[in-house]
Design a protein around this nucleic acid. Structure first.
Lengths: 360, 360
DNA sequence: AGACGGGACTTGACCGGTACAGAAAACTGG
DNA sequence: CCAGTTTTCTGTACCGGTCAAGTCCCGTCT
């Protein structure tokens, strides 16, 4: 049996191709009787509906938007929060009848998904700005929204107030009376463990913003934190980094962590060293992901609303798509979502052995 | 500036459209000099390469394959193992230069991703067989591979030996001397907690197979397990189910769990009740996901190799795609991957208070 | 010198639809 | 009954490429 197309059906029914097309795409353009007749024949012939590829070409819309995740997806998927975000995006897109295409970084020479896959738009999530894939998306002039990304002129953004959130987290520890505070954050992996200059190691905009927020609060209080950076492998690397911090002679009484997963690893390290949380050491996470409440004690953390973030990104994108091409700068949406400090059981005032006693 | 197409460039260079097309898609069809010239002009005009949608129509290949996840993606993404599988699939597809499109269940009336998105093939993962989306994929005659799915004639499958894995897990407990064994598995959610007939509650092929495996080993030893089923929410629901099992007057000495996440919740429930694992109760997980080793004590579990599963599925799919249409049945691949029991610290012989003492 | 072979480019058809402007038929209303 | 609308359907021109089969030209072998 040959392939069934509009023409096959049209000939069979005895109408023009266009009428058949309308039966599927524009019911108001023909009589109900005719529509029924066409649909019946189509069904009988095993026609599934207009070919998506052809329709995409003719209409100029594909019904799919690309999502560019961190360079390696293995890493992205290992992160609870990134995963949750992806799910939320897929969900939000579904409301607009859009599917989500994962733009894997090019592997086979010759095929570059971010260049070769038909898309209506793209969401760029936490990629380095020099990512080749981002370059392709830009060259294609595809409507794009950047999430957790260094703002660039004329781009639509959906960011979270990481700076403020981190500052609040640090302030919380200061308010509890902590003065020996360490930071466990994520880095490129070139240098690991305790580093003198963490700024040279940041890989993502988020990491940078959080670091800035922590430092802002701590500096204002005259506290100089010890900083350990580890590559993004919450299980092992973060554990090692935390352990290194907790074995310092001048052991910190509190830890600010890049994520809840990092914090959970830190808590494991603490337990391994016989330290109790929060009595011996306070731990603060980030994200308020599922692990924050799964872990014991439950984690004090900074909440960011994944769903809101996803919805904001999708909304910005669909606006761009609807606006059509040519409307480059000026009206690009730039959302900044709030964060909120959630105090749970992993933070407490420091015990006062060597710390200067509060003045009475 | 008008849209730049092959024609724009062709006119500018003074050659035919085809030559320009070849410059991009088939370098061996023209002289290097000409190719350079064409590419230079294309670059100058800001041409990004052949339009993906048009190419998809002309070539009959889109470079994207769809993945149909469990009905709700929220649920799918909440599961560590499903997520890991998705990542592995994306990774395996990338090797073939294919992108992965998430087929969200239809939300907006009118748009049905599994019908309306251009795709080269599809992977169906753990969906109910009566899923509408699967129906659409079939009607489209799209090459499809079914993963963790009840085998159907003429379909390509990549399954895991869940039956054997579960049997091994149960046998392990029997070998340790356990006789009061309970099962904590996943169900539709219609009934929850301890149920008399778990079979009516299974929702996925995997759940069914595991149940069958456990029962096979236990029945052979004359052991009748108590079974609790809970909907797929490892955090809360699984915790409740485990708690219910552990508070039975005739408390089981061992728990067989549907997944590592379920097992982790069970361990939390045990801890909450003051029971030690494995001294008071042994716990067995399933999947050997990241949580199996993150949890203390580390989890005895049944390993299945996600990457192998993903690779098998992708391999089967790419074969189908390469074979082209028309080769329906007979040669459909049907892979069954092995499982392996991994014994760690969460299982031990039962203490012998009420159990008959071993003969000396 | 003439036939042959192959590299470099061109031609025309087709992929399977959709948009838009019109034509024919049916429906108003004065 | 005829002009003025609607409704319903049809033609034609793309959408932006790729494919398969030429055409042309030039070097080479005999």
């Amino acid at each position: 049996m040959d392939k069934v197309t509009l023409k096959t059906i049209a000939d069979r029914v005895g109408v023009s191709r266009m009428t058949v097309s309308n039966a599927f795409a524009r019911p108001d353009q023909l009589s109900d009787a005719m529509r029924e007749r066409v649909l019946a024949v189509a069904d009988e012939l095993g026609y599934t509906g207009p070919d998506p590829a052809a329709r995409a070409l003719a209409r100029g819309a594909t019904g799919a938007v690309g999502v560019l995740l961190t360079d390696s997806l293995g890493i992205a998927f290992a992160d609870v929060f990134a995963t949750a975000f992806l799910a939320a995006v897929a969900d939000a897109l579904a409301d607009h009848g859009l599917a989500l295409t994962l733009l894997t970084p090019p592997r086979t020479a010759g095929v570059i998904p971010s260049r070769d896959v038909a898309l209506d738009g793209a969401i760029v999530y936490a990629c380095g700005p020099l990512s080749e894939d981002v370059g392709w998306l830009k060259r294609r002039r595809l409507p794009a929204v950047f999430v957790d990304q260094q703002p660039v002129a004329g781009g639509a953004h959906a960011n979270v107030d990481d700076h403020g959130g981190a500052r609040a987290a640090a302030q919380h520890l200061l308010d509890l009376g902590h003065r020996r505070i360490a930071i466990l954050t994520v880095g490129s992996g070139v240098l690991t463990g305790v580093v003198a200059d963490p700024w040279g190691q940041t890989i993502t905009y988020s990491a940078e913003q959080r670091l800035a927020g922590w430092f802002e609060a701590l500096s204002a209080a005259g506290v100089v934190p010890t900083v350990a950076v580890e590559p993004f492998r919450p299980d092992q690397a973060a554990y090692d980094g935390a352990r290194q911090l907790l074995e310092l002679t001048d052991r910190p009484t509190a830890l600010l962590c890049y994520s809840d997963a990092f914090a959970a690893s830190a808590m494991r390290a603490a337990a391994e060293l016989g330290l109790r949380v929060p009595d011996d050491v306070s731990v603060v996470g980030y994200d308020d992901s599922a692990v924050a409440v799964a872990v014991r004690p439950t984690l004090t953390t900074v909440r960011q609303d994944v769903n809101a973030k996803a919805r904001a990104a999708v909304h910005a994108l669909t606006s761009l798509i609807a606006a059509g091409p040519g409307v480059s700068s000026g009206n690009a949406e730039h959302v900044l979502l709030p964060t909120q400090l959630i105090v749970r059981d992993s933070t407490a005032p420091p015990k006062a052995p060597r710390v200067a006693r509060r003045n009475p």
